[in-house]
Design a protein around this nucleic acid. Sequence first.
RNA 1: GCCCAUGUGGCUCAGGGGUAGAGCACACCCUUGGUAAGGGUGAGGUCGCGAGUUCGAGUCUCGCCAUGGGCUCCA
Length: 650
Amino acid sequence: MSAIQIRLPDNSIREFDHQPTILEVAESIGPKLAKDTIGGLIDGDPEVRDLRTVLKDGQKLEILTMGSEKGLEVVRHSAAHVMAQAVQEIWPEVKATIGPVIDNGFYYDFDSPFQFTPEHLSKIEKKMKEIIKRGDKIEKQVLERAEAEKTFKSMDESYKLELIEGFDADSEISIYKQGGDWFDLCRGPHVQKTSQIKAVKVLSLAGSYWRGDENRQSLQRVYATAFYSQKDLDEHLKNLEEAKKRDHRKLGKELGMFYFDQLSPGGPFFTPKGTIVYNEFLDFLREKYRKYDYQEVITPQVYDVDLYKQSGHYQNYKENMYFMEVDDRQFSLKPMNCPGHCVLYTQEKKSYRDLPWRVADFGRLHRYERSGVMHGLTRVRTFSQDDGHIFCTLDQMQSEIESFVSMFKEIYHALGMEDYKIYLSTRPEKRMGSDEVWDKAEAALENALQRMELPFQVNPGDGAFYGPKLDFMFVDALKRPWQLGTLQADFNLPEAFDLSYVGDDNSEHRPVMLHRAILGSLERFIGVYLEHTAGHLPTWLMPQQVRVMNLTDRQLDYCKSLTEQLKAEGLRVDFDDRSEKLGFKIREAQLMKIPYMLVIGDKEEESGQISVRLKNGTTKYGLKMEDFVSQVKKDVGERMLKSPLIETES
RNA sequence: GCCCAUGUGGCUCAGGGGUAGAGCACACCCUUGGUAAGGGUGAGGUCGCGAGUUCGAGUCUCGCCAUGGGCUCCA
């Protein structure tokens, strides 16, 4: 029998007289490595394999040890089993279902006759730590299907049984034993023994459904996470804290920008301060619209339901729409602008010379979101979008897309949002329109991205039935993805509204419609941007840009005149004239994240110079007022991300 | 919509059958102080809403509403 050869990442070859497991390969290299081994990658496949996997001749193996990023999945997977074991050791009547690894952790769904509470969670965590301390060895055992079914049936683990029934006929059915009697149906991968799970934390509790189907058994999901070390875990918990601190709902309240009232669920109230931010974004977008040749329009809020029957929204989107009946006529609040824009398109006969016809609309939209899905500003029932529609010919699509992508890049760059991913979703199985049209549309999207040298990922079959689309996924400062911008080609609405233009051949043609948004919903965007910037908006967006503060009452008049002067320059300035100590005033301004604080005492008044404290805590003394004004005007006027006074530091 | 938790002054929260509390914010007074909290006094509450139990309900029960964490959804 010839030797079995396994290739390692450094291209060295190890030989065996039998097909070795990943762990055996590690053992052959050294005991330390074997001890740390928790899995492996075979032939460059990104799927992490169990260390008990039997290798075949000629395979390439990368051993994953404690500390490797990929290996963390294995640790978390095993930790999920430890959780299930812990729960069943404490409450044997609880049934286990599934426990997958997710981003930054894992969860396990249980069917329990009683409700879990936070006290239960700490019990679970305690028990998990006990099991980890015991260091139970984890062993894999392959079962025949019939045997597996019999086993789980006798244990009354109906969910496991259902899982087994769903497996392919030829798939291997394995269980993993931990310690004495406890085992779980699982295909792995798992660590060698529970003590390889170094740090665990049970985080939270939530409801879920078996197989994610709300008509089936409701389960209790316990979220937790595991890391290689307590230090990593602490770091992660700190990040979670940071995310909490940055929560836009908290920031919005602290900065006094918006709030919600029970009387309008999902209906944000923007305060005067929040409205300034909102409108600054609109001004910014309008400026870009002028540059990119869009025409802004204003369209009705309320339409006869017939409009949505014609567009197809009534049939497909009814449960998310608001309806009202007036004078025996059915009306609906608009959930999107596109049908209205189609109506507007038909108001005058279009020639090919009129295309591309680009309209933008900040119209208020209302969508009846189901009660459980609302979330701060990121999911609301009333909002407006930086919505726009481009009606063009199929041949104009590519240049329109390129122009859109340029505008997108320009806007995201200006907002300091450089990290985003682009997804191209192509034709689904159920779709309208000819393959020829789809070919052209998909090619236009793809070519545009290639010409702009933007990397993108294709999601085959993920497009809407009416056309392919691009989705722009912004990744924020805490590495969380948000889908904000979008560009969707639509062959359906032009058809539904029988839109046409007269071509140079003097016959009628059907235009293509592009739906596009860069920030998406303004409400949602403001929420995301607040979290991304942790509330430190660039000066041009700040409701309060400069705060003047006097040291003593002697400077009252002087400060008033300075305030007036700054106001006359178009800056948003206020004057804290309360008889409080300077430290107190500074603290407040700092908490409000006001970028410029003018501190005026006798010295300043006498010298005619000013002292400016920046929100990063540094103070510039002896500035001339006119220099300060020009710096701040530059900051605001050029929509700078950082104050020029901070820039010039160091 | 579903599961669980929560709802007490503008905000953050304590109180858990017997007359509604604290800190911050707010108002007024004292203080005029040089870069993240000076001191005093005061005003402010249908304890989410509605029923029920009780001599008596923020407090216990039920229903509803809203919010939060998830699930599902986001043509």
